[in-house]
Structure formats: C-alpha cells, structure tokens
Design a protein around this nucleic acid. Structure first.
Lengths: 124, 124, 124, 124
DNA sequence: GTGGTCTAGACCACA
DNA sequence: GTGGTCTAGACCACA
C-alpha cells in the first residue's frame, strides 16, 4: 500500500492517512479483505509516531472502512467497495485548484496544460 | 478583495488569508499601493475572530507583502509585484490532485475533463 | 456535571466518560446547548491526562452527542435529547448483575433487597 | 461449567473467565476437587485463543483457586469453598447499576421492576 | 507478532 | 481562555 505522507503540509498526518486509504478503497486498489500494514509498520516507514497511525486506523474503523481482528492486522471491510462516483472525491481539490488559478490570473489553457504535464510526470 | 474562507477546511484560517492575498498579488489583482480591507471588515464579513485576521495581516507584513500606515488601512507594498513564475504556486495543488486521481484510479482524460468542466463552471 | 471516574476499573477511562455523558443526556440532566466542562477541567478534577478526556470528547462529537465551537467549550448538540427508552441503556448492566447473582447462587429476593438497599444508600 | 464469555464487552477475556470461576466457587456450583474443562476445550467452545484461557487458569492457580495435577485436568482447590459473604461480590455491579440509573434519571421503583423482570427472564 | 490505553509534555489555531 | 496534533515511552490484551 503506497501512502504519500507529507509531514510539512498543513493537513494533519492522521487525516492524510484516512483520506488516502479511503481513496485507495474507492479506486479498488484496496479491496475488501485486504490487510492493512500494521500500525508500527506504517509508523516506521514514514517516520511518524505509532499513536498517530493508530488514531487514523481507529477513525477508519469508526467509519466502517476497516475492521479489527483481535491480535491480527486490520483489514478492509466487506462493505467498503469500489465507488462509481469517485470523481466526486476529487471535487474539493478541483475547487481549490481553480480558485488558486483564478487568483493567480492564470488562464484556463495554461492550467490544463499544467495538469496534463503533471499527470504525465507522475506516471507511476 | 475577494477572499474565499472555508471554515470547515483543514487549512488554518490565517493561512487561507495569507495564501490568497499572496496569490492575488502574484496575479496582479492586488497592486502596490492598493489598500486592504480593515481587520474588522474581514472578520465581520467572514464571521471569524478579528485576532485571526490580525495574525494573518501581521504575517503578511513580516513577509514584506503589505505595510502598515499609521491610522490608515494597510496597503500592498511597492516591492510586491506580479510574479512571472506564478504557475509554480499552483504546483503543490497539482501534486495533490494528481496523487488523489491516481489513488482513485481515475484515468488522465477523465481528470482533464473534470478540470476543464470546473474551470468553465467557476468562470467568475 | 458529575462524573464518577474509576481509574482502577477495567473500563477504559475515555469509555467511562462517554458512557456517563451519554446517560446524563438521555436522562435530561444535560440538555442541548449546555456546555461541557473543559478538557483541562475534567482532567484536573479527576487527575487524569487531558488527552484521555480529549479522546472521549472527540468520540462524542463523532457520535453527534456534542459539538465543537471553535475556541469555546463544547456543548450538547441540539439533536441529543432525553431518551424515552432509556431503560434499555440499563440492560447490559442488568444482564451482568443477574448472571453474577446466578453464579454466586444468590436467590432473587436477596438480589432485589441488595439493589433496594444500594438505591437508598446512594440517594444523593 | 457454564461460562458466559462476551468478546465484545470491554472486560478482558481472561478476566471474565477468572471472575466467573471465582463466583461459581463462591456460589458452591464448583466444589473442591471438581475438574475444570481443559484449556483447549474452553478455547474451542468460546472461539478464543488457548493462550488467553491458559493465562486465566494460571492466574486462578496463583490465587489458590485451582490446582494443577500432572497430566490430568486442573481442579478446584480444597481451600476454595462456598463463601458466606458472597453478596459482597455483587457490590461493584450494584454500584454501577445504581450510578447508571441515577444518571439516566430512572426512579427507584422502575429500577427494581427492571431487575425483577430480568431475574425472571433469565430464570435458567 | 497485532492493536489499545494512558501519561507527560511541547506546540498550534482560534475566541 | 478553548480544543487539536504530535511525540516518546510505558504497559496491557490477544493471536
């Protein structure tokens, strides 16, 4: 599971984790039954505190996205499936992007070109 | 001056103000000598605490973006001018958008179309 | 607001807080709009860590029992009202009491008498 | 030996086992010399891990409640006998019940009636 | 090994 | 003053 945690962004770390797992589930890259990496594993890999990861996992459990198995790794809930309206989950970011472009007085063609370039650049 | 303050977004209020004024200056919509609305005015209009606005204004002053004039409204500094590389100020949002699209497993064409639609929708 | 926090009980501290506030709301002793004592206040009074209280408050917020007001005390949500079926909230404790009595081979009359005595003893 | 193990209750599993065996002994339903079901048997029947049952048994042994016999099932110790003051073992639950009733603003008569009903309902 | 609870303490955002 | 986030570290319950 590939998370991109940014410790200098304003977004709380636990929120970044929740948002990204939610997207990976909506996108079908995490499927019901899949196990999440352990709290300690995520904490170690991203050099953050286990409690922070644990908080994210608890929130996801409360949300019905993942489920606990006593003494075993958490896994994606059966009810959490690929979402067909997942374009909506992009909406807030789109709003922010367009607002920023307007304030910077960047014209539409330039914005689209920049998005296009970035899409190619991050081609995974 | 049109600010779009989102009290439920995770981004701190004072940061939203600073970011947006910075962009309006980079985009040339606020020019050297232009006056800022008063702290009270902004606070009232967006229903936030004056201390929060004041903090944003102080940060902008420290950054050399605006300057205080005794007994008069703050204004945009002479040195704060339209920025030619302002597309870079879009970069963080572009990164986040593309990461989110990848995690949602949305293909490039669909992302571009969504950006395009949003650009038209928010035409101003 | 009177909470009875038992640090040596097996029940997690944050759970005790949530359970008791929930009951006080169901019982009408905390009403919509009422302010909760601050996190620090509860922590100080019961000699527990503020983070523990904060966790309880966050859970109650997620549950729609209380709401945050930025920079101000949390308060009981409008939707959280006196519950007519509140006897059901006693059910788990009743089950446990009766199970224990059975295992201890205490007859019904003696149990009822003990409950009665305790009810009078804690009269307040 | 009838144990009622509740995996979703907050009480630790090993504690539920210890508490209930202790009560069955105090109540005389388990008498000195009686054999306990094996660790595996209890684990299987309640779908919990044998190590958890084993931990409970070890605690009971340390407490002088049960004793190991090489190659044979554990059994109730000679010293563990029916307790005349066993009503006291109900005290903590009574306290919790009455506290909950008070917080729910349920009057004494209603509480007694609920206890009475539950006593009849669980008649065995 | 897994996740959970709690503490002590630093620092942030907002009113 | 209010609540929120994060860390470092101890210790528990369960598989």
């Amino acid at each position: 599971m590939l998370l991109d945690i940014n410790t200098s962004s304003g977004t709380p770390l636990y929120r970044q984790i929740v948002d990204q797992v939610r997207r990976l589930v909506s996108g079908g890259q995490l499927q019901p039954g899949d196990e999440l990496p352990s709290v300690r594993e995520v904490a170690r890999r991203h050099a953050i505190n286990p409690m922070t990861v644990s908080k994210a996992y608890s929130l996801m459990e409360a949300e019905g996205l993942v489920e606990r198995q006593r003494g075993k790794p958490m896994r994606i809930c059966a009810g959490a499936v690929r979402d067909d309206n997942r374009i909506e989950q992009l909406d807030e970011l789109l709003e922010r992007l367009v607002l920023a472009a307007r304030q910077l007085d960047i014209d539409d063609a330039t914005v689209l070109e920049a998005v296009s370039r970035k899409l190619k650049g991050l081609k995974p």
